[in-house]
Amino acid sequence: MSTISIVLGENFFKKDPQSSDLGRKIVSKGIIVLDELGFEEFTFKKLAESIESTEASVYRYFKNKHKFLVYLSTYYWSWLEYVIAFETHHFSDAKVKLENIIRIVCHAQDFPDALDLPEVDISKLRSVIDKESDKTYLNRNVDEINSKGLFTGYKSLCSKIAEVVAQIDPKYPYPRALVSMIMEASHQQVFFAQHLPSLTEVSKGKPKRLEEQAADFLNHTVMHSLK
């Protein structure tokens, strides 16, 4: 049984969804509906229908669907930061640690049941991140969103991974740029393989899972960049 509790600040919601059964249902079912419909077709009305509630009840928790996506993304990155700490704290070799971090970021390995999130389908949440997370910042309100601290979880995770990069090669001039590339490519390469296969060598036709192939590609690229 999971013991992980992700706590996010009040800027992410109007009412904390973790504070009630309805709120937790909105999050858990919202992930599934968002994954099925995509961000463009997803609405709070459709989500409300799926949980046999009202659209107004969903709006009591979240201002709009973009805020809901930001919440889910931050929830995911906060969970991933915990997983990385749990799974790699025992590695003393920074290179080995970074290789394992990349595998975790790519979901190229299975995680213990103890790292599950309560009432959340991690595979569905990861699918949402793969397809929709770019929309949290690729919009005209990105500066306002950032000023409210809504990207703190993502930036915190990137910063901690950049510290590992610096341990491997203290003179490498672009640790944060390298890490942000890792984070984006970890889901983009899988998406490309599924929908735009001419853009990548990651392929459904190979023996390894797409996530494992993406991890292999990123480890190859990163380790050739670092001394």
Score class of each variant (00 low, 15 high):
65 K>Y: 12
126 R>A: 10
56 A>L: 07
25 K>F: 10
147 S>H: 07
143 D>N: 13
107 H>I: 01
44 F>I: 13
128 V>Y: 03
39 F>K: 03
8 L>I: 06
125 L>P: 07
214 A>H: 02
108 A>R: 02
84 I>S: 01
147 S>L: 14
60 R>C: 06
215 A>F: 08
14 K>S: 04
77 W>E: 09
224 H>V: 11
5 S>L: 10
226 L>Q: 12
60 R>D: 08
202 V>W: 02
148 K>T: 14
112 P>G: 03
99 E>S: 04
70 V>N: 10
7 V>F: 11
13 F>S: 05
98 L>H: 06
193 A>H: 03
210 L>I: 07
27 V>T: 09
168 I>R: 00
89 H>V: 12
180 S>E: 04
78 S>H: 07
77 W>D: 04
7 V>G: 00
117 L>S: 00
199 L>F: 13
115 L>D: 02
111 F>P: 00
203 S>L: 12
174 Y>Q: 09
79 W>A: 03
62 F>P: 00
6 I>C: 07
32 I>N: 01
121 D>R: 00
33 V>Y: 02
95 K>A: 08
133 S>I: 05
44 F>E: 10
218 L>R: 00
120 V>D: 08
59 Y>E: 14
56 A>Q: 13
200 T>Q: 01
74 T>C: 11
220 H>M: 12
196 L>S: 06
72 L>Y: 06
150 L>C: 11
70 V>S: 07
158 C>E: 07
226 L>V: 10
24 R>A: 05
148 K>P: 07
214 A>M: 06
